[in-house]
Amino acid sequence: MELRQLQYFVKVAKKEHVTQAAEELHVAQSAVSRQIHQLEEELGVALFVQKGRNLQLTSVGKLFLSRLEEILSELERAVIEVKEFLDPEAGEIRIGFPHSLGIYLLPTVVASFRRTHPNVKFRLRQGTYNSLIRDLMKGEIDLAFISPFPEKHEYVSGHLLLEEELYAIVPQGHNLAENGTIRLEQLKEDSFVMFSEEYSLRSIVLEACEKAGFAPQIGFEGEETDTIRGLVAAGMGVSLLPEMALTEISQLQPAKVRVVEPQVTRSIGLIQRTGEKLPLVAEGFQSFLLHFFQETEKTMPST
């Protein structure tokens, strides 16, 4: 069994088509077909069945794929670690982040790091709270920015970086738009533009409203801070957003008002797999981040 056979198998399984797989692999279709056939003969099972013009994995093919992806992921990681050992300044950092941190925080820290480490590459993956932890546990990323920071978790651990304030946002013509501060209960009669259920910011807003003595009326839902901000600016309701999500200026701009009762914040942290040594390049980036937030927290948008 050769590595090339396994790589061809994975590509065909993903594309469900030999010709398309061959095109992406930049090899002849016959070469791919031959390697798949040899692999099936060696294993003594059929990995694919024909369905129309496409190929579909058999049950045993699906099982083989799931195990093989783990093996190839570890092999890729081993190759990266060897390269990093030889030249840690030219490695790759695999890091996950939620959308709300991709607007300001992530570009800021990556740009700052690359000023002194210009040859380091970044592989970025955006996700929700649960998907980032899942990707970290599966070994698909090495580090993740996450919010809220999980104080206790069986499989991941890390460092709290900062606490960030959430502001109320209302349409420009709203009767509270010119206020310097408000109590959250003053929005209880308004319709809320809320994040979808898989986003941690939704639970933060719901908990804040509960503390203020009301359950918000949800009129619209969205999955990105830009969408939430745009809907509020267009008069579709009110919401709460982290301050970093409000740094960008756009044509549709809501009014931003500080909430003083209760004050609403979220924790932001950096996590990794518990008990596992980071690749050298990721370890260097982690150290940089801890120093960065210790030294420059006062320059970041925060409470």
Score class of each variant (00 low, 15 high):
F220V: 12
T181D: 14
Y199L: 14
T181F: 15
D226V: 05
Q186R: 12
L176G: 14
G180P: 00
E189Y: 07
G219W: 00
I182K: 10
S196L: 11
I169G: 07
I218E: 02
Y199D: 09
E221S: 11
E221P: 02
E185P: 01
C209D: 07
I228T: 05
E224I: 03
S200K: 13
E178W: 11
E197A: 07
R202T: 04
S200R: 14
S200D: 09
G173E: 02
A177S: 14
E221I: 09
P216T: 10
D190Y: 05
N179W: 10
T227R: 01
L187T: 01
S191A: 15
H174C: 04
A212E: 05
L206I: 15
T225P: 00
D190N: 14
R183V: 00
E178M: 12
I182V: 11
Y167Q: 08
D226R: 11
L201C: 04
E207H: 04
G173L: 03
E198W: 05
L184T: 09
G230P: 00
C209R: 03
T225G: 11
H174F: 02
L201N: 07
Q217D: 07
A215R: 13
K188M: 03
A177I: 11
L206C: 06
G230S: 15
I228R: 11
A215K: 14
Q186M: 15
H174D: 05
E224D: 01
I228W: 00
S203K: 13
E197K: 13
G219T: 06
C209M: 08
G213N: 02
E178Y: 06
C209W: 00
E185G: 10
F214E: 04
S200H: 14
P216D: 10
G180L: 10
